[in-house]
């Protein structure tokens, strides 16, 4: 499998230094590296505030990263001028969580789907219609949807339309930021199956950001677990969830409720909450909540290491 996306040492620090004000800096993303192969689905999981969405936006350069590089198809996106960046961007598309706010309510679906074609390829609305109809069919919507407005559709249908908008430029990589989180389970399953079918058909790759380990287990090939801006563990999904090495991955897994009464347990409790990235703990960022923390964890941040590049974790005292 060829690598479509190679992210190296990506970091983002938000901050300001203003006259007469205290300087502040928040490191939202710290030294993140990973790859996505052609036709592969890589998941990113973690609690709110762990940097998942910042990562997605940095990959797309919607937020300019402070450090690191994003190689897409062997081209460094961070080093491109505005024009070539725009061209590259047509090959990476994004789907957002809330289909109510990510579609323009004053435009028909047809106009919304035509816009990327006009911006990137200069195709006029009339000439775009066959492609609009084709992509609507592909996501399981009737072509009559093109003349309607977003409020006429349910949440699941709107998410299908958002997927259609992402697909119309025939991207190689689709970044989905909590794309199914707002949907009911029955509709969520419909949308996941649709996305998987499209992947089979087109051979595209997904960067799939979610907080739901159940979705990760059933949809992704590999997964990155993030905590406070860093990747703490990564690897193939089944292996990583069956035998987590990082105590955070284990806690996250054990907190996910399983719809099975025979597996009923007091959901293993992770104490406390994610700390503020403006004031991160010393050493390993997870140590104040970690059941396995020792002295070294308080002093020294562990490095992300692994026996193979498939399976990596950053922990001084990994789970057996």
């Amino acid at each position: 499998m060829n690598d479509l996306l190679v992210v190296e040492g990506l970091g983002k620090t938000f901050g300001s230094k203003k006259f007469m004000q205290a300087e502040y800096a928040v490191t939202a993303l710290r030294d993140v590296s990973f790859t996505i192969g052609e036709g592969e689905t890589v998941g990113v999981v973690g609690e709110s505030g762990c940097g998942k969405s910042t990562l997605a936006r940095c990959v797309l350069d919607l937020i300019t990263p402070t450090t690191g590089s994003v190689l897409f198809d062997d081209t460094d996106l961070t080093a491109l001028d505005a024009k070539s960046k725009r061209e590259m961007r047509s090959r990476i598309q994004m789907i957002f969580q809330d289909p109510y706010s990510s579609l323009n309510g004053k435009r028909t679906i047809g106009k919304t789907l035509a816009e990327p074609l006009w911006v990137h390829e200069g195709v006029r609305f009339k000439d775009a219609l066959p492609r609009i109809h084709a992509v609507l069919k592909e996501v399981g919507m009737p072509i009559s949807a093109a003349d309607k407005y977003p409020h006429e559709f349910s949440g699941g249908q709107r998410q299908r339309i958002a997927i259609a908008r992402a697909l119309i430029l025939e991207p190689d990589l689709v970044i989905a930021d909590e794309a199914v989180s707002a949907l009911d389970v029955s509709v969520q399953a419909q949308v996941l199956l649709l996305m998987r079918g499209i992947q089979k058909e087109r051979g595209l790759s997904y960067l799939f950001i979610t907080h739901d380990l159940g979705v990760v287990r059933n949809f992704c090939d590999r997964v990155l677990v993030m905590y406070l801006g860093s990747v703490v563990e990564s690897g193939p999904v089944a292996e990583l969830l069956t035998n987590p090495k990082h105590p955070y991955t284990k806690s996250l897994r054990d907190a996910a409720p399983i719809p099975d009464v025979s597996k009923r347990q007091s959901l293993a409790l992770l104490e406390g909450e994610i700390p503020s990235p403006a004031n991160p703990p010393s050493g390993c960022a997870f140590h104040p909540r970690c059941p396995r923390a020792t002295d070294i964890c308080r002093k020294e941040a562990p490095k992300l290491e692994g026996t193979t590049d498939q399976r990596m974790f950053a922990c001084h005292n990994p789970e057996p």
């Binding site: 380990l213 159940g214 979705v215 287990r217 969830l241 719809p259 099975d260």
Partner: peptide, 8 residues
């Protein structure tokens, strides 16, 4: 329809 974290 419920994706489970313990099994695919």
């Amino acid at each position: 329809t419920v994706p489970r974290a313990d099994a695919a």
